[in-house]
């Protein structure tokens, strides 16, 4: 019962956040609405007893991606869009159709195949188990990802280096 109430509340938050994020023309508002969506999602993960995923959701999506988005937006013109002018695309019905199609084709079957609530085994959440999983079967994936991120980091540093000010010809001693 508790879980159910929590689920509906969190889902409502997530859906509302997502809707606002899509419809707001003010980019900053949009980003924050998106972050609300992430927060709702993180709550849902928590409800599934996937603590680590929930924490990572907050850490990565809200903490890192959100800030990244904000930084990116600060570089654009006209941050504060006109909220009064609603975004109404002419082809919105096609979008709806596409969404429905995605739902039916991709998601409907997995949802139907989910085990019923009674049959589901209560899982004991453990970070340790996750760690073992990461290190044992998925170690190559992890390493590749780490390498990729390192490459991105180095690339970012190099890109930043290129913008450095030219040294003065006669720097005073």
């Amino acid at each position: 019962m508790n879980e159910e109430i929590s689920f509906w509340i969190l889902s409502a938050i997530a859906v509302l956040g997502a809707l606002v994020a899509v419809r707001k023309r003010n980019l900053i508002h949009g980003v924050f609405a998106l972050l609300v969506f992430f927060a709702g999602l993180s709550g849902l993960f928590l409800l599934l007893l996937a603590e680590f995923i929930a924490a990572v959701q907050v850490l990565v999506y809200i903490g890192a991606v959100g800030v990244l988005l904000l930084f990116a937006i600060m570089l654009t013109e006209r941050v504060a869009g006109d909220d009064d002018r609603r975004m109404i695309s002419r082809g919105w019905s096609w979008g709806l159709l596409a969404a429905a199609a995605v739902f039916v084709v991709l998601l409907l079957r997995p949802i139907q195949q989910l085990p019923s609530q009674d049959a589901a085994q209560p899982i004991k959440p453990s970070v340790e188990a996750l760690g073992h999983k990461l290190i044992n079967p998925y170690v190559v994936t992890l390493e590749v990802l780490a390498l990729l991120l390192t490459a991105a980091l180095i690339g970012a540093v190099t890109a930043a280096q290129g913008l450095r000010m030219p040294k003065e010809e006669d720097s005073p001693e």
Partner: peptide, 12 residues
């Protein structure tokens, strides 16, 4: 004063 045009050149 360093030359600021260089910063504007190839950056954002």
């Amino acid at each position: 004063a360093p030359n600021y045009e260089l910063i504007q050149q190839d950056g954002l």
